[in-house]
Design a protein around this nucleic acid. Structure first.
Lengths: 135, 135
DNA sequence: CTCATAATTAGAATAATTCTAAATTAACAC
DNA sequence: GTGTTAATTTAGAATTATTCTAATTATGAG
């Protein structure tokens, strides 16, 4: 059914992302791919990123990133995000984690944030209808 | 030195956030506090949220949330975010984590995202100049 | 109570992203 | 190769989220 076409724009964007470790923004990507193909448009960059995300070839660093979301900061808690309904639940339980020494040597680690993704009680069984983003 | 004043706007916003587990957006907060105080402005909500964040009383769910950031999704990696320079480093190493059974019973967990915060090699020693956000 | 200055406000400005409608192009059948 | 069709790209307008500006108000120290 859903056929999809291979275009040089998609290739250029994918190639750029593959050789990149800087977690670029859409604007960054736009500037970079435009050097090779000056006709490529910003709208295409956005379209393509959303498309590649849906295909699972690209992921996004934050959750629902078009709007900022806030929290009181009283407890050091983590989050569970339901991939079906999109709700965010607070996790108060401790999650033990073992960070390899090599890592602790390389970075001065001050705090940790853990996001769990999956389906909540009400949604288990349903098919996934949100993109697996930020993972 | 830096005196700060207690205003009913700040109280209203803080009170709303305290009794809330929905991770509201600025717009959500604006609508909610406006029911009690119709004169409160959206700019104040933004000002106050940024202020409370700086004070550490409120935190924000995502990192650098005004721009989306992308990644190829080939490896299941985590991230280290330097609080000083803001750079994001990929973590390829495995981070072992033990999720309590109570949690695994409550949610169907499909994947995990871990963000480590701290200072990178080049920045250790420097004073922290980015807000501790998203923690 | 007075005063200095912090905070609020409305609305303009900016920045990021999405939408629209027309033009182009890849893929596929023939 | 040619023609057809639907997918994709494009420029620019529109929308949305956030910040800025400059004037006004109000908190808290003295």
């Amino acid at each position: 059914m859903s056929t999809f076409k291979q275009t040089y724009q998609r290739k250029a964007i994918m190639d750029y992302l593959k050789g990149n470790r800087d977690h670029p923004t859409a604007e960054d990507i736009y500037r970079a791919v435009n050097k090779g193909n000056p006709s490529i448009s910003l709208a295409t960059v956005y379209n393509t990123l959303n498309f590649l995300k849906k295909k699972g070839l690209v992921s996004e660093l934050s959750v629902n990133s078009t709007k900022r979301r806030f929290d009181t900061n009283n407890t050091n808690h983590h989050h569970f995000i339901c991939l079906s309904c999109g709700n965010v639940h607070d996790i108060e339980e401790d999650i033990g984690l073992s960070i390899p020494k090599a890592l602790r040597d390389q970075f001065e680690i001050l705090s940790v944030r853990i996001d769990l993704y999956g389906r909540c009680k009400g949604c288990s069984g349903k098919s996934q209808d949100l993109p697996l983003e930020g993972i």
